[in-house]
Structure formats: C-alpha cells, structure tokens
C-alpha cells in the first residue's frame, strides 16, 4: 500500500511536488525513485516543491540534503522551492540548515536558479 510521490519530467528537469504529510518509508522511496529517474532520463535539474508541507522534520530535511548530494554525483542540480516561513524558522531552531541544498522562493525562481547553476558550473557541456 505504499503511496509513491509522483516524479514528473519536463524537458531536462524532474519535478516533484510533495502534497501530503509523508510516512518515513514514502520519503525513502522518493529518494530511491529520484536517483533512478535522474539516471534513466539524463535529467540535468531536479525541482522539489515543498510549498504544501506544513512541517519539515530532520528526516525529511536529511532526505532533501541527500537527494541534492546524490543528484550532484549523477550530474544534475537540485533546487528545493517554496519552503514556508514557519518551516524555515523551525528548521533553524531544530539545528538543520540544509547547507548544501540550493533553495528558491517558488517554482519560477527555482528554474532560474537551476539555469544559473547549470550555466556557471558546467558552461561547456551541452
């Protein structure tokens, strides 16, 4: 009965929009699914939209950091978009700062951040 979070593909970007309160197992499934899809599609960017999430605890926070690190190894950039103010304040207090994770205010800003990352870090690659 594992509900999986859908991973959408638009061009060379994978888009994940987390809409519900996730069980830990679903969070781990998402991490696996994303790694696999990056390899399968050769995507260069991943956008994870968390604007619907009312809380991000250390488990989800760690998943976001892990996905960012894995995607980098696989040649893609990840951006987390739409974190709510209350969630950001809570994460700071919790002690998680998502150091290596690219973030943006919304989907549009997220795509712009991905373009910047792709153009500046690997300008010669196709």
């Amino acid at each position: 009965m594992t509900d999986r979070v859908p991973v959408l593909q638009i061009g060379d970007v994978l888009l994940v929009s987390i809409q519900v309160d996730l069980e830990d197992r679903t969070v781990l499934d998402l991490q696996d699914d994303l790694s696999k899809r990056i390899v399968d599609t050769g995507a260069r960017g991943v956008v994870i939209d968390i604007s619907a999430l009312e809380i991000v605890d250390s488990f989800v926070g760690r998943m976001l950091a892990t996905v960012a690190a894995i995607s980098r190894v696989l040649g893609a950039e990840t951006v987390v978009v739409g974190m709510r103010p209350a969630v950001a304040i809570t994460l700071v207090e919790l002690g998680l700062t998502l150091g290596g994770v690219r973030t943006a205010l919304n989907l549009e800003a997220g795509l712009a951040a991905l373009r910047r990352a792709v153009h500046t870090e690997r300008p010669d690659r196709a």
Binding site: V92, T97, L105, A109
Partner: peptide, 9 residues
C-alpha cells in the same frame, strides 16, 4: 539569515 536562505533569499 539562515532561515531566509533556506527559503531561497
């Protein structure tokens, strides 16, 4: 500053 950064600013 850290919280703002996590939101993308």
């Amino acid at each position: 500053v850290v919280a703002a950064r996590m939101m993308g600013a």
